[in-house]
Design a protein around this nucleic acid. Structure first.
Length: 498
RNA sequence: GGCAGCGUAGCUCAGUUGGUUAGAGCGCGAGACUCAUAAGCUCGAGGUCACAGGAUCAUUCCCUGUCGCUGCUACCA
């Protein structure tokens, strides 16, 4: 029954600062992982860092250290973000790992028939580690606007990987959903993109231009460029090719990526796998970007949202809640502190936190904390399951909060506080009351169950409050009100906008 | 330029395989209640469902065009 499942996240370049997009990767993968575990499956959950390339080498040189030592001190930034968002990953891969490097060299050799040597000429920017077209160079007057350095015209030997050889197979795999790309419009976008076939990609650089990377086997003058190196991580971390057991988890069930790297994961990566004669991943989950008040997040604008700030002020579950429910899993979303805080205070505080509180308070007050047998709640779970299985996590949470609302409505309907008053006069009131409260607790326990993938801490708190049949004493308030970015409605004269 | 998609209540969006009063949340207004984090519940406010044509007994939901917007992509060199 329990299957072995595998989920991956994109490995960020270690020289960059962790941002909300990375956090989204980890959160989405973690929600999926917890959900699958809850259903009895064994899950391997990969994360990692991409650590080669000129930027790293340059930074290291700046700091008078060697690249490896530099990355050793950098990769922790991402590791701590993963931990901070509560990601229960099982495997952490660094592209500088000994095993990874060797595995990539093995892959290179195995792909030999699809690799050929060619020349590349063009305008190169050291800062970007990339070539630019004549037009781009012209348009900028020959100076890279991002790095304020002139483009260099260079000609160099490159090895190319013949992705073009796999166009038909890849197109077919995507069209038939053997690689299931979700959401659908990303699938269409990609198919449109490869209408005229995949283009071969350059997969190496002369050593003089790229010092820090995996050496090309058999050619001391060439070093691998990012693609083969970085993409391979998804299998090398499992132990490919030599360590036992990697095939128990590959192909990946879900690969979580941002929309900006779809083309690599739907093109080059499947080509590599086909070349290696390894099965293709089953699903690509393509998430969007998080905007802030409708604008792109950018350092220059200064509107970058730091996950740490949210988590430190409101708690981990509040962070997970907002980004799971109010940022659509499969599309762009929008963050503002006002939206966040409103969701926190209203949905988590007033709706969820409060209903837990009111039920436990009534059980304590009317029944000395004794719950009795909480019946199995009989809500229809299908919409929730459908949403989870189709990777629309935000919709799954919508369903949970429909239940929360339903429970509040139920309580208003049956008015246990009135039933409690009749205990002296009506002999049946006591058992009636007990029934009502037990039923409410049953619903809460089910809600907590559904929250496990999303708000693990909250789910646990609800469970431990009720599961023994007696209200656990000293249960604190879930999600106390916080007004850092919106006016406190109860603080004297609330500032009212016209 | 090509491809895809969007334009529905103040805001964010859902929806109708075309058919009586077009929905939710937030925000706003009102009411009844008191177990609870001064929470929750109920009710209300009336939006030409972008605009114009067309097909249809009938369309917000199909077709065409126009305007506006978004994403992906290409290029004009």
């Amino acid at each position: 029954m329990g299957k072995k499942l595998y989920i991956t996240t994109a490995i960020p370049y270690v020289n960059a600062k962790p941002h909300i997009g990375n956090a989204l990767d980890y959160l989405i993968a973690d929600i999926w992982t917890r959900y699958q575990k809850q259903n009895g499956h064994e899950v391997r959950f990969q994360v990692g860092t991409d650590e080669h390339g000129n930027k790293i080498a340059a930074k290291a040189a700046e700091n008078n250290t060697d690249p490896k030592a530099y990355t050793d001190q950098m990769y922790g930034n991402f590791q701590s973000l993963m931990t901070k968002v509560g990601a229960e990953f099982t495997d952490f891969v660094r592209t500088t790992d000994e095993h990874h490097v060797q595995a990539v060299q093995y892959i290179w050799q195995k792909l030999q028939t699809y690799i050929y040597k060619g020349k590349y000429e063009g305008w190169y920017c050291v800062g970007h580690e990339a070539f630019f077209t004549d037009k781009e160079v012209q348009a900028t007057g020959g100076i890279c606007p991002d790095h304020q350095k002139p483009y260099e015209h260079i000609s160099e030997d490159n090895y190319y990987f013949k992705t073009s050889a796999f166009t038909d197979k890849i197109r077919e795999a995507i069209e038939t959903d053997r690689i299931f790309i979700t959401p659908e419009f990303r699938k269409k976008e990609f198919l449109e993109l490869i209408k005229d076939g995949l283009k071969d990609v350059s997969v190496s650089r002369p050593r003089k231009n790229l010092s820090w990377g995996v050496p090309v086997p058999g050619d001391p003058d060439q070093v691998m460029y990012v693609w083969l190196d970085a993409l391979a991580n998804y299998i090398t971390v499992l132990g490919y090719p030599d360590k036992e057991g990697w095939q128990e988890y590959w192909p990946a069930d879900v690969q979580v990526i941002g929309k900006d790297i779809l083309r690599f994961h739907a093109g080059i990566w499947p080509a590599m796998l086909l070349g290696l004669e390894i099965p293709l991943p089953k699903k690509l989950l393509v998430h969007g970007f998080v905007n802030v008040g409708g604008a792109k997040m950018s350092k220059t604008v200064g509107n970058v949202i730091d996950p740490n700030e949210i988590i430190d002020n409101y708690g981990l579950d509040a962070f997970r809640y907002f980004f799971a429910r109010h940022i659509p899993t499969l599309d762009d979303g929008d963050f503002t502190w006002e939206k966040f805080e409103t969701a926190y205070n209203n949905e988590l505080g007033n709706d969820l936190g409060n209903v837990v509180q009111r039920v436990s308070a009534m059980v304590t007050r009317y029944q000395a904390g004794v719950i009795g047998d909480a019946p199995q709640s009989e809500h229809d779970m299908q919409p929730y399951r459908d949403a989870m299985n189709s990777l629309n996590f935000n919709q799954a949470l919508d369903q949970v909060f429909l239940m929360v609302r339903g429970l509040n409505q139920y309580l208003e309907n049956v008015k246990p506080w009135e039933v409690a008053k009749q205990k002296d006069t009506d002999p049946e009131a006591e058992s009636h009351l007990a029934e009502i409260l037990a039923s409410a607790v049953g619903t809460l326990l089910q809600i907590s169950d559904l929250l496990v993938p999303f708000l693990p801490g909250t789910a646990k708190a609800i469970q431990s409050t009720f599961e023994t049949g007696v209200i656990a004493p000293g249960t604190g308030v879930l999600f106390p009100k916080i007004y850092l970015h919106t006016p406190d409605p109860h603080a004297g004269q609330p500032p009212k906008s016209a």
